[in-house]
């Protein structure tokens, strides 16, 4: 059993909130750079140039990359031999988010109730997903999620007979419908299988996988490739103004499912796809 003070978690969350809103991870930076080289449309290339410049200005002037600094989504993988001390883990995560968003000059975008819509003024609470894993460490993955693209995300309850082609149509259809609203070029997280809620969670998790990596299952890796190719033929392009770069990546995650079902979650993220990880 390892004792771990929750303040360490709070401090780590604070630091990650700030870092990732000012500087994208390496995989996203290089994906955008590569897109600027391969985009065939002139206006598309111009927009991608603006996005690259925006990243430089964010770092140089200490201004968040995007004004939508997101709702904080936190994946906590907790080793089963960890014993938390010093308070509640949930409070610690929210304390980290509150300090990160306040001290980091990030936008407070969370309302306390979906209908009365009063701002909580410190961007809490976070959305926290816990899992228990072997070992005595805690892995924290933070993904602040902007809602321009979150609003264009979908869950489809397909039939087993729809198969891989049905999955492709669902994914490409969601991106087509999102069009310019989701701030393309997008990253598409797809969860296939499980249940209604499991596929949505897998889709969210897929967005935190490095852009440029492939599924380790060959038939899923092939599906990712095919979905990306079809999406980039939609001519939505950077900022929705046309071009060959509508998505930077399609990341798919799968889970066993029921004999009667084929759930598919499609979580769309804009080009400011923020994800950062640390292990304590």
């Amino acid at each position: 059993m390892r004792e771990l003070d929750v303040r360490q978690i709070a401090d780590a969350v604070r630091d990650m909130c700030i870092k990732i809103n000012y500087e994208l991870s390496e995989d996203m930076q290089s994906a955008l750079k590569k897109a600027a080289e391969t985009e065939k449309g002139e206006l598309g290339r111009q927009i991608l140039g603006i996005l690259e410049q925006n990243l430089e200005i964010a770092a140089d002037d200490s201004i968040p990359i995007c004004q939508d600094t997101g709702m904080a989504v936190v994946f906590l993988e907790v080793g089963q031999d960890v014993h938390f001390t010093g308070g509640s883990i949930e409070d610690a995560v929210n304390d980290g988010v509150a300090r990160g968003y306040t001290e980091g000059y990030l936008r407070k975008s969370v309302v306390r109730d979906p209908l009365d819509r009063v701002n909580t003024k410190d961007n809490t609470p976070a959305v926290i997903h816990y899992s228990i894993v072997p070992g005595d460490q805690v892995r924290i993955t933070l993904a602040p999620k902007g809602f321009g693209s979150e609003n264009m995300s979908k869950v489809f309850m397909l039939k087993p007979a729809d198969g891989a082609e049905g999955v492709l149509e669902a994914v490409v259809g969601a991106v087509r419908e999102a069009g310019p609203n989701a701030c393309p070029p997008v990253v598409v997280g797809v969860g296939i299988g499980g249940t209604f809620e499991k596929c949505a969670l897998l889709a969210k998790k897929a967005l935190t996988r490095p852009v440029g990596s492939s599924s380790d299952k060959p038939h899923i890796a092939a599906l990712e490739k095919e979905a990306l190719a079809r999406i980039n033929e939609l001519d939505i392009g950077p900022a929705g103004l046309g071009g060959t770069t509508t998505a930077l990546a399609v990341n798919m995650e799968t889970y066993p499912t029921h004999i009667a079902g084929l759930p598919v979650g499609v979580n769309i993220c804009c080009h400011v796809n923020r994800h950062i990880q640390t292990t304590i």
Binding site: I47, L51, P180
Partner: peptide
């Protein structure tokens, strides 16, 4: 940024309005 409804577009035509897009996600710039 993004699409507008048919109601907004007909109101723009009626009232002689204009809709501009700025580049989404370029808030620092």
């Amino acid at each position: 940024k993004g699409k507008r409804s048919p109601e907004v577009i007909s109101s723009m035509i009626k009232n002689h309005g204009i809709y501009f897009a700025a580049v989404g996600g370029a808030g620092a710039l």
